[in-house]
Design a protein around this nucleic acid. Structure first.
Lengths: 152, 152
DNA sequence: GCCAATCCGACCGTCCTGGTAGGATATGGG
DNA sequence: CCCATATCCTACCAGGACGGTCGGATTGGC
């Protein structure tokens, strides 16, 4: 499995927040109940989203979480990156924010650049592109359509 | 990290075989030495490639492995799938070869299809497309070009 | 018969994952 | 003022995957 359940839970959480009217805090417990997910674990997940600036929070009674900006302006690459860390197909792709790429197994003994790097670059591009071209608003819309189909 | 080192080692192994003249067996030891990888571990990796029909083998002295068909006809989706198993972004995407897709956390209680499914489908498509459009021959070519640049 | 190889299965330490537990802090309502 | 509700934070834990090792069986060329 490529992504962990943190991504699954986190995306569901974001969709759930996107379904609510903005600026109105939604408690984690409500989301946990709606999705059937463990509350304590969701706390860890939402912490990542908050640290990434994707959601805001209010403590105390009637507190909760809400999107820090409209769902149309949130691409899923932001969400997944916040939840999973850097999107890297392979260990040697965890560049420190710059162009520095270090390949563990590249002795570079006269046999050119690692061919695998070419492959992983393409894969990484494919993943990021698919995440960038999907907004949270799209997912919210999708979930709403299914809901309408049910009630109709 | 999205792929394990089995994919890294396996792809390197395939590239190495692609660099050799076909039908002539190359021993694992030669590859292990050339790439600086543990021989015993490579045995497990190459076993997957063999079971997938990507490489053939000859036992005994002067035995070894070679590509079962020309590198131009091997796409990297075959290689990676043989090494990593099914390319699934999430647990519920391990469909049993048919259209059967089961979502563990989908109570489907009036709230439509899981929106995450839409997302993971796109991601999966992005990955598979990037793997399908890359042939082993390309990687071999790429590694050769780097080599020439060194010797020139 | 020896040596080089592929094959096969068991084993093992370490890290990651998914989840729990317990508490500290903040806040609105009574 | 007190309590229920909620976010926040840290530590902990069991299970499994991962990366790798080891020992041995088999095969085949010289």
């Amino acid at each position: 499995m490529i992504f962990s359940s943190k991504a699954e839970y986190g995306v569901r959480l974001m969709v759930e927040l996107g379904r609510q009217s903005p600026e109105q805090p939604t408690s984690l417990k409500a989301i946990a109940d709606a999705e059937g997910l463990p509350l304590a674990y969701l706390e860890q997940v939402v912490a990542r989203l908050r640290k990434a600036g994707l959601v805001m929070s209010a403590r105390g009674a009637h507190g909760g979480y809400w999107l820090s900006r409209p769902a149309e302006e949130i691409t899923m690459v932001d969400v997944v990156q916040a939840l999973e860390g850097a999107i890297a197909p392979m260990e040697c792709f965890v560049h420190d924010h710059t162009e520095r790429v270090l390949c563990s197994h590249e002795p570079d003994a006269g046999r050119g650049p690692c061919a695998t790097k070419l492959l992983w670059t393409r894969v990484q591009g494919g993943i990021i592109r698919s995440l960038q071209t999907t907004t949270l608003a799209e997912l919210v819309e999708f979930s709403r359509r299914g809901e309408l189909a049910h009630t109709a």
